[in-house]
Amino acid sequence: MIPAAFEYYRPTDLAGALSILEEHGDDARVMAGGHSLIPMMKLRMADVPHLIDLQDVEGLGGIEVSGDSIRLGAMVTQSDIINHAALTEAAPILREAALQIADPQVRYMGTVGGNVANGDPGNDMPGLMQCLDASFTLVGPDGSREVDAREFYEAAYMTAREDEEILTAVTIPLPKGGYAYEKQKRKIGDYATAAAAVQLVKDGESCSAASIAMTNLSDTPVYCEAAGAALVGTTLDDAAIKAAVAAMLGGIDPSEDNRGPIAFKTHVAGVILRRAIERAWSRA
């Protein structure tokens, strides 16, 4: 558990970080909290001759809550999310999810930007951001662009981000209605056996909008548009929830690991989603 030797950089502005990325191409990686990258380097599964620490880069922090959206700087930590009152009021699902990530020590270091950019299917924030229809700001040598969270993930650890780009911020339209982040895990610090992010709007007795995404049930987060659609226009009766669960199960592709075989994960995914929907509805 000793990494190979590497050059360590600690630039103070984005231009500096980008120029190092550009210079070294594939041989360079940026690091936010380091909770995914450093273990991979220590296992010598990631070879990073040039490591760019973003801790000192200006302008990557900050939580801004405005009338119609939320902006999270890439270096905002899970702990920052948990402790931000205005954010919790505007989007309580963020806090509910962040509290289910790892443990307090990890949450002091782990960042939103790192969590969404790494492309690890086990991470909780990617699915959550898909549920919330967030977009990611990517800054590269040619300037800045926005990519929807729902379009960002291609495969495990493969995303729409180019090697020379840095993910600098996450923008979330102000969520409406009831919410739930439901996660089953074996223990503190574990990735999800199955997790569901649900946000839904209640109009009178019926559901007028629903968004659902699942975590760690495929090699990418799974945004389940059809599952959400199955709820819209219903009173969330048993048939509607069953239809949503069935639609979700059509979209996931879990694999067997130490958490259990596919049949178990599929079953749990259905149970977790049902619970998340019921909890979100009770809060809508």
């Binding site: 089953q184 074996r186 056996t193 958490r259 259990g260 075989p261 049949a263 178990f264 079953h267 749990v268």
Partner: peptide, 16 residues
């Protein structure tokens, strides 16, 4: 008796 093995027991007993 981790989650999936307990689930397997319940499943084998027809409880699902």
């Amino acid at each position: 008796h981790d989650h999936w093995r307990i689930w397997k027991t319940a499943n084998a007993l027809g409880l699902h």
